[in-house]
Simulated assay, not measured.
Amino acid sequence: MTHQPPSEQPFFSAVVVDALRPGARSAVSPGGTGKPNDRLRVIWLGRTRVPGIEAGVRLRLKGMVTRVDGLPAMFNPRYEILSRQEHL
């Protein structure tokens, strides 16, 4: 997740890993290189946080996909929280 400094336009960004796709592996390999098809950058403009969006949350997203810095990205998507990890 990324937060902008107060001097810049606010946005909230997270990279979502597709863990449900058959055959999907970790988004980052041991060598540190990511596989773009397993990741999606999600960006909410005009916000510094999005309620319920945090590490470990399973989401369903709906929106138009584009590319930002070579990574598939979705701006201001509709989202549904499917489940959360329990914190012990």
Rank of each mutant, 00 (worst) to 15 (best):
T66M: 09
M74R: 08
V16G: 06
M64S: 12
R21L: 02
A19R: 07
I53H: 11
R21T: 06
L71V: 13
D18E: 00
E8L: 07
F75A: 11
W44I: 09
L45Y: 13
R49Y: 08
E86N: 06
P22N: 02
P30E: 04
V28C: 01
I81D: 06
P36V: 07
K62F: 13
V42N: 12
Q85L: 09
Q9V: 02
G34R: 03
R49S: 11
E54F: 13
S7D: 03
A19K: 05
P5S: 10
I53K: 13
I43R: 15
L71E: 04
V15D: 04
P30D: 05
P72Q: 01
E54L: 14
L71I: 12
R21V: 01
L59K: 12
F11L: 14
R67W: 10
G46H: 11
V15W: 04
M1R: 15
E54T: 14
D38F: 08
G34C: 01
P77R: 11
T66S: 15
S13I: 03
V57E: 06
G34S: 10
V50K: 14
V57I: 15
V57F: 05
H87G: 01
P5G: 10
V28H: 02
Y79N: 07
W44E: 07
R49W: 03
G56E: 02
S26F: 03
V57N: 10
P30A: 05
R60T: 14
L20P: 00
M64T: 15
E86G: 06
Y79Q: 06
M74G: 08
I81W: 07
V28D: 00
G70R: 11
V16A: 07
S13Y: 02
L71D: 01
G56Q: 08
G56P: 05
P36M: 01
Q4D: 03
V17H: 12
A55R: 15
L59F: 11
S26W: 03
H87F: 01
P77E: 07
V50P: 09
P10Y: 12
E80F: 03
H87N: 03
H3V: 14
L82G: 03
W44H: 14
S29T: 05
S29Y: 04
V42A: 12
D38L: 05
R60N: 14
G70T: 07
P10L: 10
